Computed example of a mutant assay.
Amino acid sequence: MNESKRNNEEIDLREIFKIILERRFFIVSFTLIVTLLSIIYISLKTPIYEIKSVVRIGYIEDELVEPANILTKKLRLIFNVEGNKENIADTKALVSNIKVVRGVSNFLEITTRGYSNEIAIEKNKEVIEFLKKEYKYKIDEFIFETNRSIEKLEEEINYIETVEKANVLNEIEKVKNQDIPNIDKKINFLKNIELTTIENKLSFNQKKLKEYEKNLLDINKLKSTNDTQNMLMAMQTLNTQNLILNIQNNIENLIKEKSNLKDIVIKNLEQEKDNLLNDTIRKLTIKLNISLKNKISTINDKIELKKIKLKNNSTKNSEVVGTFIENDKPIKPKKTVIVVVSFLLGFILSIFFVFTFPFLNKFNKENDWRA
């Protein structure tokens, strides 16, 4: 039984090889025709080239102009990435993909395809230019605002130098040349005029007091038996006592006035002068030499910081990193793959037809015989 099977298998294989040998011309011809057709197809098919670029997303003060995921969706929508993939014939170039570079959130990979590397590069540049223009206003606005802020700070320094310092110097000059001399004049006037006048009045009143007291003693020493004369003397005594009382009141008031001038008014003026010399001028000098200088220094630091931000590329528009990645060989059609697949397909189909045609002929003959 086993030997019979083996014999049958050997016969079948022989038959197969025999048929293949008999039909070898057809097999070779068919295979070559299919392969030739694929070569013709490849020759007629316009080649498609692919260009890639890596773009660094623009940033303002180290913050992206827009988050990478949102920007990617926006660009894919604008350049119709999803609908363009098989529609290159209309424009000769298309954007085939835009994505965030894996592991680097501030870089985009832009892929374009075209009938030549040059066309694909131009399409790639179109995307990059759009990206630059789309956010250029933000960057320009930031640069403008920063420069305007620097100008305002410089104007503030100029104001301090020309106005505030001048005002402080004028205040110092006013205190030295007006306020203090005026106080000195008042003190001199009070000491040399007012106090002297009071002293003279005191001296005059004291002399008068002594005279009235002497007169009163003299009146009291006089004695008379005449009632009229005694009455006149009593009236004279009363008048003299009134005069003495008035003089004493005047003297007391003058002493108080003198004390007030010396102990209060003049001392207050002298204290005011000391305050101007030791406090007001000192504070103004500190403001001039320290406070305003520190203020200017702080503003200069702000200006330098803003200038450094502009100089050190903390703000920059989107730009290509490196060069465009291109390949001299087109990505479509894949010539080698198509030719190899066509050759294999032609060969397989030719074998299929070689074994199928005899069976079909035999089947048709049987049907004709039966008919």
Rank of each mutant, 00 (worst) to 15 (best):
P358V: 01
I351C: 08
F324C: 02
I60E: 07
E171L: 08
P67K: 10
K74D: 14
P67S: 13
N97K: 13
D62V: 02
K223N: 04
K152L: 14
I33P: 02
N200V: 03
F189T: 10
I11V: 04
A89Y: 07
S297N: 14
P181N: 05
I351K: 09
Y135A: 10
A68V: 05
R370Y: 07
F189R: 12
T112E: 15
I160L: 08
I338N: 13
E50I: 01
K214L: 14
K329T: 11
K85S: 08
F144I: 05
I57D: 07
S350A: 14
Q236I: 03
S224C: 06
K74N: 11
S96D: 01
S4P: 04
I48T: 14
E122N: 10
I219G: 01
E3F: 07
I247G: 03
V100W: 07
K302T: 11
P47K: 12
G114H: 15
V337Y: 12
I251G: 05
V339N: 03
I348S: 15
P330D: 08
F204N: 13
F204H: 05
K287P: 01
N246W: 11
R282E: 08
Y41S: 12
D184P: 13
Y135N: 11
G83D: 13
V163W: 01
L37I: 14
E319P: 09
E126L: 01
D62P: 07
I299S: 02
E304T: 11
Y115F: 14
L131S: 02
K210W: 11
K18A: 05
I198E: 02
E211D: 09
I150F: 09
E50K: 12
N147M: 04
V168K: 00
E109I: 14
E61S: 10
L37G: 11
S38M: 00
N97D: 15
Y159D: 03
E213P: 03
E173Y: 11
